[in-house]
Design a protein around this nucleic acid. Structure first.
Lengths: 137, 137
DNA sequence: CAAATCCCGAGTATTTTAGTAAGCTATTGT
DNA sequence: ACAATAGCTTACTAAAATACTCGGGATTTG
């Protein structure tokens, strides 16, 4: 998704290209992006010169959106999963459940606050810093 | 650890009792508490009438302390583990690493802010609420 | 038509998790 | 002394999750 954000507005990006640039197997990417497409985060264009594009602007997609599709609902333990939490008999007077809920919300808070656009900015900064050190040495 | 906190100041608590009260196998508890003892969070007393006690007051032990012993260093992904993070070639200009660091710190922040004493208070409240509903119905 | 791509379902190797099992060692009460 | 209690240690295991690979089909473009 970061790679797609990087080329947002330049037409469809093929998985072959993403695979090469990011060092991830094309087959594996296909599997991952399938879910992202079904979730409406990317659009696909079939056939030669086809590929994928983000379905929304990079600042409208959060890391939380992506993670929830790829990894499932945020859930430090199953009984406090964001979706379909696993039923537990002891839940009524369980002291740890409240703790896991706090953990879950704190994770979600972080992930939902970061957009793909934020990642682009961070990447630029990383690049600038790398260049700085290059010249310095 | 919560059960030991519950009986803090009453002498050693045997794993047999903890196992019965908390519905966890005694054998499994032995395995878990072994690490907690080595980490200095509990003290053991061998022999008949022996058992375990917290090594510090409940307000001096955080959930983070316990989790780190039982589950290892906090690490949403291995490359940002609190201890001995796994080396990654791409780390130099990895955009996601920073995100995972924020997630890690946010989890640690929650867990380190809750003490066993806090859990005792929460448990009391859960108990009060349960009683309230019992009378109400 | 052929090449480039997306699309889909199955299969797999490794690791982690949450335990079980068996047997030893230390202490205490009678 | 000795039996009962309870801690201590190592090894094993069953099930699930993870991170993939593999093969083949469906679409579109030149």
């Amino acid at each position: 998704m970061f790679d797609l954000a990087l080329h947002y507005g330049e037409g469809p990006v093929s998985l072959k290209n993403v695979a090469e640039r990011q060092g991830i197997s094309e087959h594996y990417l296909e599997q991952l992006i399938s879910g992202l497409r079904k979730a409406g985060l990317v659009k696909s264009v079939r056939g030669a010169q086809g590929g994928y594009t983000l379905a929304k602007e990079p600042n409208k997609i959060t890391v939380g959106d992506v993670i929830r599709v790829l990894e499932g609902p945020i859930a430090p333990v199953d009984c406090v999963a964001e979706e379909d939490p696993e039923f537990c008999q002891k839940a009524e007077n369980c002291v740890t459940k409240g703790i896991w809920e706090k953990v879950r919300d704190s994770i979600a808070g972080v992930l939902d606050a970061i957009t793909l656009e934020d990642m682009l900015k961070d990447a630029e900064k990383l690049q600038r810093d790398a260049n700085f050190y290059m010249y310095y040495i």
